[in-house]
Amino acid sequence: MRFVRAGVVMIFILSLVIFGVSRVVLFQNRDPNEPEIVSDREILEIPCEYTQEQLLEGLTASDQEDGDLTSQIVAGSFSRFIEPGLCNMTYVVFDSADQPASLTRQVRFTDYHSPRFTLTEPLVFSEGEGSYDELMGRLGAQDQLDGDLSDWITQTDTDVNYQRAGSYTTTLEMSNSLGDTVTQDLPIHVVAAEGHSLEIVLNTGIVYIDQGSGIDAAAYIQELLDSQGNNLDTSLISSESNVDPQTPGCYEVHYQAEDGQGNSGETWLTVIVEG
Rank of each mutant, 00 (worst) to 15 (best):
E274W: 01
E266R: 10
L172P: 13
G137L: 02
P84H: 02
V253L: 06
N176P: 12
G262H: 12
D157W: 15
E53M: 05
S15Q: 07
G262R: 07
G128N: 05
D157A: 15
D157T: 08
D210I: 10
T158H: 11
A165K: 00
G137V: 04
Q261M: 13
T51G: 07
V8F: 13
E252P: 02
T51N: 08
L202C: 02
P35R: 06
A257T: 09
G275R: 03
S71Q: 14
D226P: 03
I18L: 15
I237E: 00
S102Q: 15
P187K: 04
D226M: 05
L119N: 07
E194N: 14
G275L: 03
T104E: 13
I153C: 05
D148T: 12
E36L: 08
R108L: 05
I237W: 02
Y132S: 14
E65A: 13
P115D: 02
T181S: 12
A141G: 08
T51H: 07
D180I: 03
P32D: 13
S241Q: 10
G147Y: 12
I13R: 04
F81I: 11
V24H: 11
L44G: 00
N203M: 10
S131A: 09
S150T: 15
Q54H: 09
F78A: 04
T270Q: 03
L103D: 07
S62R: 02
R80N: 15
Q163Y: 11
T120P: 03
E127S: 01
P35Q: 05
D226L: 04
L44N: 01
R105L: 15
I18C: 09
I200Q: 04
S150D: 07
T90Q: 13
P248V: 02
A61T: 10
V124I: 09
D216K: 03
S15P: 03
R23I: 14
R105M: 14
S177F: 05
G137F: 02
T90G: 01
D133Y: 07
V92S: 13
Q28F: 13
D159R: 12
G260E: 12
V9C: 03
D180Q: 07
A219H: 11
L69S: 04
E36M: 11
T70V: 09
E274P: 00
R164I: 15
S241R: 03
D95M: 05
L119K: 04
L103K: 06
D40S: 14
F94E: 10
N203P: 10
A218P: 02
M10E: 07
T70E: 08
L186A: 04
C250A: 14
D31A: 05
H254T: 09
L139A: 03
Y132C: 08
V253I: 15
M174P: 04
I215S: 00
Q106M: 11
L56G: 04
T267E: 11
T118M: 06
P84S: 01
E34W: 13
F12E: 09
G130A: 09
G140C: 07
D185H: 11
M136V: 12
E34G: 09
G67R: 10
V271K: 04
S238C: 05
V38F: 15
